[in-house]
């Protein structure tokens, strides 16, 4: 009897179990995957959903504890209008934008150059340096903010967004450099050798070959630097007390919580508005975040 004609009830020799069905196994795998994904999605999306419905409620509805809190009875955009029309809130937003743009620019320039030299220009101590860069990322920022407070204070940059622009790269540069080292290292060595023979110098090799080819990595690093800078909470809390220099993250909290009074509706609206730019950046850049750009460079 041929193998294909074997009855499903026959035992698999050596394995001691019955012959399975490929279709049935696939159905079970899919079912398990879907159940896990749905559970994960519910767990992940419940908080933002709760924020959204709270932000659409009036203060009276929020404090009314009768009935389920998951439903909005009288939806209103008042909380949003109150924030958007507030010049202070707009100030927080522009402070966050200014800090983030500067930090992302500084981070990318430093980490692309650093990663290129560490990944490709073999020099004495380059391996140790590469590891050292990563190790600095492992120091928790909650440990660093005390000495950094001293440094920023000595420079006279406390209560200034430029103090944050100076400090954030200490968080972003090591990690982004590490990501970029990985990307640059994955570019086949022959590509730079071909460029060297074609007549490129190191700078041309970086700008004409490495940056375009490692674009997915550069985008990943950019997203990381953007997120860290936009969402930072510990440093601005420590370094900034003047409302006109506050970024969005601490501005919303410090201005909408007065003593033990929480403006929940505006807090939620503010948090959602603050979360919007990262969502837009992710949605826009993910399209460019295409792995496999190196396909075709070499045999593969």
């Amino acid at each position: 009897m041929s193998a294909t004609a074997a009855s499903p009830s026959a035992a698999v020799p050596g394995l001691g179990r019955r012959i399975g069905s490929l279709r049935k196994e696939r159905r079970w795998a899919l079912l398990t995957a879907y159940i896990s994904l749905v559970v994960a999605a519910i767990v992940m999306l419940a908080p933002p959903f709760y924020m959204l419905i709270t932000s659409l409620k009036t203060s009276a509805e929020i404090s009314d504890l009768s009935g389920t809190p998951w439903i909005v009875r009288n939806p209103t955009l008042d909380n949003y209008w109150a924030l958007i029309s507030d010049p202070m809130f707009r100030g927080f937003f522009f402070n966050s934008v200014k800090i983030t743009v500067c930090v992302v620019a500084i981070t990318m320039v430093i980490s692309v150059f650093a990663a290129f030299s560490l990944a490709r220009m073999k020099f004495f101590g380059s391996g140790v340096l590469a590891t050292g860069v990563f190790l600095t990322y492992l120091v928790p920022d909650t440990l660093l903010f005390i000495p950094l407070y001293q440094i920023v204070g000595n420079l006279g940059l406390l209560n200034s967004i430029w103090g944050l622009v100076l400090v954030y790269p200490t968080l972003t540069v090591p990690f982004c450099t590490w990501i970029m080292i990985g990307y640059f290292a994955s570019i086949p060595k022959e590509l730079d050798e071909a460029a060297l023979i074609d007549g490129a110098n190191w700078m041309q090799m970086l700008t004409r070959i490495f940056i375009p080819v490692a674009l997915p990595g550069i985008i990943a690093a950019t997203i990381f630097a953007f997120t860290v800078s936009w969402a930072a909470f510990v440093y601005p809390t420590a370094f900034i007390t003047r409302p006109d220099e506050m970024p969005l993250t601490i501005g919303v909290v410090s201005q909408l919580i007065r003593g033990d009074t929480f403006a929940w509706g505006q807090l939620m609206a503010g948090a959602l508005l603050a979360a919007l730019p990262p969502v837009i950046v992710y949605a826009f850049l993910m399209d460019y975040y295409v792995a496999g750009l190196t396909a075709g460079a070499t045999k593969g």
Binding site: P188, E190, E193, V213, A297, T298
Partner: peptide, 11 residues
């Protein structure tokens, strides 16, 4: 030079 794995610039 012509390399074993071509080394074409993919972009």
């Amino acid at each position: 030079m012509v390399f074993q794995n071509y080394a074409l610039y993919p972009h």
